[in-house]
Write a protein that binds this DNA or RNA. Structure first.
Lengths: 103, 103
DNA sequence: ACTCATGTTCGACAAACTTCGAACATCCTC
DNA sequence: GAGGATGTTCGAAGTTTGTCGAACATGAGT
């Protein structure tokens, strides 16, 4: 079984931005950025697993993540290079921010 | 009369990304990026003026645009410096992309 | 083969978003 | 002040999104 992972260049910018514009999904991206590859079940978002699965699908179909299947587990990682090639500086700009930093 | 324009640092990242993750609003941002200050009515988005007003409000409340009132007109501009200070490289990353460029 | 663990998909629901026309507010000009 | 121009606000309608439990699919291990 193969998972659909589009070419970044084929994904509209607005799709990428919408995908990142959600607290749960951005939290996932932050963890991937910090830890590298992560198994699906290790994201503790306080959400049902169906919901987590949904968010991971949104990220994957936006071209942001790669999913490697191994047994019954799926290992998710950021497609850093491809993102950086198409949107240079985007990840740094988005992730390099401490939330709620008023000043 | 004064318009509400929040401090960028007080706006969640996801709010900014959601604001940019819409075709109509990103089109507005592109035009502002290209032309500088623009009068509200000069955006031809193929949308009713009520809808245009809504999108401009979303951008303004996300801290992305500044609105200057002059008579019955409102002149909108990008808050470039503030965006750049809080999200270095974000605007360039988002706007420096030709849409649909499949390679 | 049965069971357990890991995820996905389906159907449903509520909340949020986009869109519009109509009504309103405000300012400018005659 | 009447009329026109520029925008905003107010419902309302339709769509999309986020969320969940239940059912399903798949692989590992006993």
């Amino acid at each position: 079984m193969e998972l659909y992972e589009p070419d970044m260049a084929a994904v509209p910018v607005t799709t990428v931005l919408s995908a990142l514009g959600d607290d749960a999904r951005l939290a996932i991206v932050r963890e991937l950025h910090r830890d590298g590859e992560r198994c699906c079940g290790t994201f503790d978002l306080g959400l049902a697993k169906a919901t987590r699965s949904h968010h991971l699908k949104v990220l994957r179909e936006a071209g942001i993540t790669h999913t490697r299947i191994e047994g019954t587990s799926r290992f998710v990682s950021l497609r850093r290079d491809e993102i950086e090639r198409r949107y240079p500086g985007l990840l740094d700009a988005v992730l390099g921010v401490k939330q709620g930093t008023a000043h």
